[in-house]
Amino acid sequence: MKIMLTINGLDVAAHFSEQDVATVHKPLLQRLAALHAAAPHQRTIVFLSAPPGTGKSTLTTFWSWLAAQDPHLPALQTLPMDGFHHYNDWLDAQGLRPYKGAPETFDVPKLAQNLRQIRAGQGTWPQYDRQKHDPQEDALQVTAPLVVVEGNWLLLNDPAWRELREYCDFSIFITAPAAALRQRLVARKQAGGLSEQEAEAFYQRTDGPNVERVLTSSVAADLTLMMTENGDYRF
């Protein structure tokens, strides 16, 4: 199945095999639908945590599209965690801008506040502005009964991040071979205009440590998916 998805304002071509849709993605959405049906009067919040390079944004946007095609599934909205980065002024003051994306560069209390609001009812969600490279407040109106919050650190084994589990009804973790993630992340930076040397340096400074930390320092999820070397997902 080839499909065009809009992710962060950009059109992205995605491909999912019909077999994987039937054996992985639809069964997973049906499981989340059953979870919501057990408590239909409140919003169901799912955490999807995974290292960089595992295609979280594409995957969750596809899930949202797939749910919309089936009248038996509740509407699903994907909520990226990137909008909770601290502003660049704050990062510069702390000397953290070169490490943007690490756990320390996120405003965890602000994320908890937004999760509390959307659990209670209607709320908004910030989005990361990739032109300004800063959060854009209230960019998304949260309306769906089922939401998937996706990011690297949602299951981090750290006191501040563990407190977020209060707002999580179900958690999913994606694991993947570290070598495959390195190849994907370096290629992504080169596609964005960096030289091979610059892309490798960025990986060593930022992406690589983040990949290792997510893979080794996340608490167990309710469900784990494996991303294969060719980008497919398996239970």
Results as ranks from 00 to 15, higher is better:
54 T>M: 03
56 K>E: 06
99 Y>K: 13
115 L>Q: 01
42 Q>R: 15
116 R>E: 11
86 H>Y: 15
120 A>N: 05
46 V>D: 09
73 L>I: 09
112 A>L: 03
52 P>I: 07
113 Q>A: 14
93 A>K: 14
54 T>P: 00
62 F>S: 03
107 D>V: 00
87 Y>R: 15
84 F>A: 12
100 K>A: 06
119 R>Y: 02
72 H>V: 09
98 P>C: 09
59 L>Q: 08
95 G>C: 03
89 D>W: 12
76 L>S: 07
52 P>K: 09
116 R>S: 10
110 K>S: 09
103 P>A: 13
113 Q>I: 00
96 L>W: 14
83 G>D: 05
112 A>Y: 01
110 K>P: 00
98 P>K: 08
103 P>C: 05
102 A>L: 04
107 D>Y: 05
69 Q>C: 11
96 L>K: 06
109 P>Y: 11
46 V>Y: 12
68 A>P: 05
72 H>S: 15
88 N>T: 14
94 Q>D: 12
75 A>G: 13
50 A>V: 03
100 K>H: 10
112 A>C: 01
94 Q>S: 08
42 Q>N: 13
46 V>M: 11
113 Q>N: 03
44 T>Y: 03
70 D>C: 11
43 R>V: 02
53 G>M: 05
49 S>F: 02
73 L>Q: 11
62 F>H: 13
65 W>F: 13
56 K>Y: 04
50 A>R: 02
113 Q>T: 07
112 A>K: 07
67 A>P: 07
84 F>L: 13
44 T>K: 01
78 T>K: 12
96 L>I: 01
48 L>P: 00
87 Y>P: 10
45 I>M: 11
97 R>M: 04
43 R>E: 05
77 Q>N: 01
